[in-house]
Design a protein around this nucleic acid. Structure first.
Lengths: 147, 147
DNA sequence: ACAATAAATGTGTATATACACTTAAAGAAA
DNA sequence: TTTCTTTAAGTGTATATACACATTTATTGT
């Protein structure tokens, strides 16, 4: 097993948390830069994608699907609603507020996904198959650390 | 090599970027919760630690050492300065603004580091030696993706 | 010395994040 | 039906993040 431990530069911090935060910033910057022509950030693209996949999800539905704090979600949707990418409407249950994509939102999503493919491929090539698989696996495990 | 690919739950998103962002949020929440009694977040502890390690670093020095955008650093230092954890003073070169810890800052750092040891150990135990090593290695590689 | 340039920092604006608290609506209990 | 409770959502506040632009000070070229 030892022979698969690759020798990349040591992380500049001993702190596991700071290390993952730095890497997260770097990857986010890369994806955001690649998606730039679409006018969406990677977070926004992710949100539109989840909304597109679900059927008029409520705020809580979205927060759960996106695994993000409900109040954070609330704020993240704001620029998308103001930009005309989605509409927010009351549900049958008047407490619910449901999100649906506009045609403008679907179009932006398509364009962003085209660019996303590039970013995803570039990152896959950069990491290589094994590291990418390892990364996915460990990130998934880390997510499960917190309820 | 295949036999070391552990079988954790699949990540909930196909997007490498969203996956690392979610994991980063989870780990950050865990560290912040553990550090809570110290009154510092993990980001703030990291900043105090870097300032403590360097000698009256300038804003740009800190940004480079912490690998964060200079303007982000500027804003991150604000609550620490207002909280009396550090002082900001002009350098010989009047363009430079230099950071030094106060005794209050050094004390908070010590307390935070005590708690940080716990968090770090818990995470190491949770991931296990091999995954932790792999993670460090891959995160370091990811960081290098962006100049 | 003066002008041009470079370097260090700060500000405006905008998104991303989450905790504590509040409000509004639906459902349950009396 | 009226009250109690639970559930869904929103707000206040605060930190974290970075890009585009502005300001200040030092350095360099003439």
């Amino acid at each position: 097993m030892k022979d698969i431990v690759k020798l990349y530069p040591k992380p500049s911090s001993p702190c596991n948390c700071m290390n993952i935060r730095r890497a997260s910033r770097a990857v986010t910057q890369f994806y955001d830069a690649t998606l730039q022509p679409s006018g969406l950030t990677i977070t926004q693209m992710g949100l539109l994608k989840v909304i597109d996949a679900l059927s008029a999800p409520s705020m809580s539905d979205l927060a759960a699907a996106f695994r993000i704090d409900r109040t954070t979600l609330n704020r993240n949707l704001k620029p998308l609603a103001e930009g005309g990418y989605l509409q927010l409407q009351r549900g049958q249950d008047a407490r619910r507020r449901e999100a649906v994509l506009t045609s403008s939102g679907r179009q932006a999503l398509r364009e962003a996904q085209r660019l996303w493919n590039e970013a995803q491929q570039t990152m896959a090539d950069y990491l290589g198959k094994d590291d990418l698989q390892q990364l996915k696996s460990i990130l998934s495990k880390l997510e499960a650390m917190v309820p």
